[in-house]
């Protein structure tokens, strides 16, 4: 357990010794601020719904940049060997890194609470859908992280890790688009797999247990695959 936090702390520190975290954080604030204010101007409605959908798209682009270096850099620098020959379990390393990215993401997301504060100050928003939207974005964002970490276990090259991560996330995001044109079973399956379909409820203000379970199992699945991907050296 302690090893997880040790690794989390180290990862967080290295986020802020490189410019990546600052740049991603800033760009996230710029974009989400823009979406929030523009949508507010146009709709003149004290709601977070429009902004929420756009924030998640912003994250879809930015999250692979947060996760791209997690394992690819360790592999490139050879430090993976240093790390994996210490008395830590592979799963601890994985969770430590996941937690670090999660903390960075949650901090980013928490800073958008300012918008909610503005809404409550000048309007009278319905808080229920706002909190459920936040929960949805949180779960969906953590799923992006899990998938991004998997991408970074595949290669030594950070750029490639980011591209693969982004492609995988986007693919799973739009998976449901095709569902209307296929048979009944396939359609249901594809829209179940798709990351975006499960977010709709949250944004509308409906917390469905099925959706929560989907995101949680998505995260667990990709972290598990990532651990296996790190262990692949042992099977070669």
């Amino acid at each position: 357990m302690n090893s997880i936090f040790t690794i989390t702390l180290k990862e967080l520190r290295s986020y802020f010794t490189s410019p990546i975290a600052y740049v991603v954080f800033t760009m996230f604030l710029v974009l989400s601020g823009y979406f929030f204010s523009v949508i507010l101007f146009i709709s003149k409605e004290a709601s977070f719904r429009g902004a929420a959908s756009n924030i998640i798209i912003t994250l879809l682009f930015l999250m692979p940049l947060i996760t791209m270096r997690m394992f690819s850099e360790e592999r490139k620098m050879g430090t993976l060997e240093l790390l994996m020959t210490k008395p830590v379990r592979d799963i601890e390393v994985m969770l430590g890194k996941f937690l670090a990215a999660a903390i960075l993401f949650i901090t980013m997301l928490a800073s958008t609470l300012v918008y909610i504060f503005i809404l409550t100050k000048y309007g009278n928003p319905d808080m229920g859908p706002i909190w459920s939207a936040y929960l949805g974005i949180l779960l969906c964002g953590l799923s992006f992280i899990a998938l991004g970490i998997f991408a970074s276990t595949l290669t030594e090259n950070q750029i490639i890790a980011a591209v693969i991560g982004f492609a995988l996330v986007l693919l799973l995001w739009v998976m449901s688009w095709i569902s209307g044109n296929l048979g009944e079973v396939d359609s249901e399956l594809l829209s179940y797999i798709s990351l975006s379909t499960h977010l709709e409820g949250f944004v509308k203000g409906v917390i469905n247990l099925k959706d929560v379970v989907y995101y949680l199992s998505f995260i667990v699945f990709w972290l598990f695959v990532s651990v296996k991907s790190i262990e692949i050296r042992k099977w070669k």
């Binding site: 290295s14 060997e81 240093l82 379990r89």
Partner: peptide, 20 residues
């Protein structure tokens, strides 16, 4: 894990976290 606790290892090419 038990073995790794008793082991000090310097891998080839001395990999280190350069930013630390």
């Amino acid at each position: 894990l038990e073995v790794r606790r008793k082991l000090g290892y310097l891998p080839e090419n001395t990999p280190l976290y350069l930013d630390m």
